[in-house]
Structure formats: C-alpha cells, structure tokens
Write a protein that binds this DNA or RNA. Sequence first.
DNA 1: ACCCAGGCGGGCG
DNA 2: CGCCCGCATGGG
Length: 289
Amino acid sequence: MGKIKVADFDIRYTVESAQPLTFFGDIHEEGKRVDYVSEFRKFEVRQHKDSLEYFALPKISEQKAREEIVRRFGLNDNMQKIYEAIATDQFLVESIEKYPGMRITRNDPWETTVCFVMSQFNNVKRIRGIVKKLIEVHGERRSFEHNGREIVVRSFPTPETFANLSVKEIMKCGTGFRGKYIKGIAQQCVDGFDLYKLEGKKYEHIKEELMTLPGIGDKVADCILLMGYEKLEAFPVDTWIKRIVERVYFKGKVQSIKTIHKFAEERWGKDGGYAQQYLFWRGRSLKLK
DNA sequence: ACCCAGGCGGGCG
DNA sequence: CGCCCGCATGGG
C-alpha cells in the first residue's frame, strides 16, 4: 500500500469522464475508488480528499506502484498552468469550476484503440458493457492468492486473440457493426502494424498512421492520441464538441470539422485536450443542443 | 413503439 | 472534396 499527496485532482470526475478507465475499470464508493487491471496486476486506487491510497496485487515495489499511479492519472500535469491556459472565456471558467480536478488519464495504445472504436455511434453505458464483456469472454484469466483469498484478474484481449476470432464471434459480445473493425485492426496488428512503435512520434504522424486502420477516423484517432499516446494537444471533435464550439464561439453558425480543429489549435494549442474535456462535460451537463 | 448514442466507410454529384 | 446514408444494439 502507498499514499500520495494530491492537489487539483478529483478521481471521480476523472474516472467517470468516459476515458478508458471508465470503460474497463470497476468504479466503487460513488466514484471515490477505482480498480483496474494492468499487465495482470490489479490496482486499487482510492481518494481521501488530498491524498490517494493505492494497492497493487501481486505486489510490486513501492516506487513502481507510485510511478504507475502518477503516470496513469496524469498527476504530473500542472493543473494551475493548464487551467490558466484554457480559461480563455466564461464558458471554460465555469467548466473548470464545475469539474475541478478532472484529468486526462494515460492508457495503453491498443486498449485505448479498442475502447474508442467501440465508442463510435454509441453511448457510454453500452461502450462500458461491451468492453467489459470483451475482457470477460476473451481476456486471459489469471489468479493468485492474497491473504488466503483468491484474486482473479483478466487481461485485456490481445490483437492475436481477436485476429483468431471470427467477426461473428466478436459480435457476440455486443459490439454490433464495430466487430468487423476490431477484427480488421487486430489482423493488421498481427501482420506487422505496431501501435507501440508509434509511441513518441509526432502527433501528425501517429494520426495519419492510425487513420489507415479500419474504423478509425478523425475523431477516434484524436481520442487515441489524447488518452493512449499522451498527445495532450489532441482535440477530438465529436457531435457535442462541434455543437458547443459553434454555439459558444461562432454565434451558433455551422462550421466544418476542419475549421473547429483550426480554431481549437489557435486558441488552446498544446492544451487542446484538456480544453476539449472540460468543454465536453460542461456542454453535456447543460444539454447544449 | 420509437429514438438516440463522444462516427465511419462508401457511394454519389 | 462535401454531403448523405446505413449501420448493430440496448436503454430511455
């Protein structure tokens, strides 16, 4: 067990904000605790006001566990600076006031890819159900003992697993038409497309590569860049963001996706990802349509 | 019973 | 290009 002091962090807003941890983590205690599996290890993270308590099973060194938590939850992000940069107007000031401490999480590129391919033309609740079922049915099961109790973990299914399944088999987990995309992407990963080789490359390059994969367009690519490749400048433009930006910054006039990307880049630059996240949740809570 | 959900691919003009 | 349509599925 370890403990970390935190400021400008809210685990609930973070894990409930439709990031990969929302889709495959187990959220407990009204959002104050999240359990998730990474590399066959179960991590349990709980927030008490200004500190974070965490466990890793099977155990790893205190330092390793701490590094995982700090990285995963974006605890090194300087929120005061980021807030200063993205609070360009009243709407964003209110967004930040409403969801203080919401962070961008850092996730595995492959897992992030599957999660956001599942997100297209879908809703959060169902995405969650689908991803959890994929893990439950196709993840590798491992168990170990802790204090005389058996702990079971399941890995996120690998590209190899999906490549060896038929689309029909994948669709049994409720993926719908997205099943063929997962199969296609998995097949390409097995055939040499290396998602991990893209880590550390430039935003534009990664985006171009991701968009060659089936089922990954402009919006999904940006989500993967933001949460799977730590590209905090990524600004995913979905129907909500499009509406919100048009409404708040273009007097309600319809704009192209391209114009919206350009606007976001000029206004928020390298902090676009955080701006997007706050715009999105504020817009949704206001049901801005 | 509808209607919609953090899009994408394909076909058309 | 830009526009429009269909798409699997389950919850409201």
